[in-house]
Amino acid sequence: MKPTNGEKVFYGVNYFILALAALSCLLPIIHIVALSLSGNEAITLGKVGLWPVDITWTAYSKLIEDTNILGAFRNSLVITLVGTALNMVFTILAAYPLSRKHFYARRFLTLAIVFTMLFTAGLIPNYLLAKSLGLVGNYGALWLPGLVSVYNLLVLKSFFENIPEELEDAARIDGSGEWRIILQIVLPLSVPVIATIALFYGVAHWNSFFNVLIYINDPERFNLSVLIQNMIQSQSLMSELAMLDPDAFRKLTPESIRSAGIIVMILPMLIVYPFLQKYFVKGMLIGSVKG
C-alpha cells in the first residue's frame, strides 16, 4: 500500500520528534566531553559547543596528579565486583528454596520478605544498626544491608519455578543432592536471567552514592560518585588546585576538571552499555510481567 499524504506527514513528524528526543540524551554528554578537552579561554568565553576548542589534555593530567581519582576508580571497582559477587550468591540461595513447592512455609516466608519492600525502618534505625555491628567506615556497610534485593529475588524465584520439575526428579533418582541439582541443572539453565540480575546489581554498586556518603568517612575510601560530587559542589578544591600549580591552573577552569571527572566515571558504562543493553531490557521485562 502506498502511504497517503497524511501518513507521510505523520511519519515525518514522528521521526523528527524521536530524533530530537534521542539527541537530547546524547548532546549533553558530547558537550561535557568537549568541555573536558577545551582550553580555559574558550570555556569562559562560551565558545565550546559540541567540539573542543584549543584541545588540551591538561584537565585529565591534573585530575590524575592532584586528586585521588585513580584511588576512587579502584574503590568503585572493588565495591562493584565484591558487592555483585556477594549479591549473586545470596540471591540464588534465597530464590532456590522459595521456588521449591515442597519447601516448608514458602508462602509465609515470601510474604515476610515482600513486606520488607513495602515498609522500611528509615535512615536512622538502619544507621544505628550498622554502627552497632561495627560496619560504619568500612565497605561492609555497603555490601551487607543490601545483600539481597527483594525485586531481583522475586525475578529469579519466578524463573526457577518455571524450570520443568521432571529434569530435577530425574537427577534426584540418579542420586544427586540439592546442591548438585542447583550447580548442574538449575544454574546452567538460568544463565541469561542470572547475567541480567548481576548487571542490575553491578550498575547499582557502580552508581552507589547515598550509602557511601553516609557510611564512609575516609576520603581515601570514597568511590567515584562521592569524589565527583565533592568536586562539583566545592569551590575549595578548585582554589587548592590553583595554589598548588598556578601556571597550569591558568589554563584550566573548574568546568574542564569537573567535566573530566564526569567522563572518567561514565566511560566504563558507555563502553559496556551498548553490548549489554538487550540483557537490561530483558530483565526489565521479566520483572514487569511478574509485577
Binding site: F90, Y96, P97, A121, G122, P125, L128, L129, W179
Partner: peptide, 30 residues
C-alpha cells in the same frame, strides 16, 4: 529429607532479613 538442604540454604537468608530488615523496624521506638 528433601527440606533439610533447603533449610540449610535458607538459614543465612533468614538471618539476613531478620537482622537487616526486621530488627531496624523496632528502631521506630526512637
Amino acid at each position: 529429607n528433601m527440606n533439610k538442604p533447603l533449610i540449610i540454604m535458607f538459614l543465612p537468608i533468614a538471618v539476613f532479613f531478620i537482622l537487616f530488615k526486621y530488627v531496624p523496624m523496632f528502631g521506630f521506638i526512637t
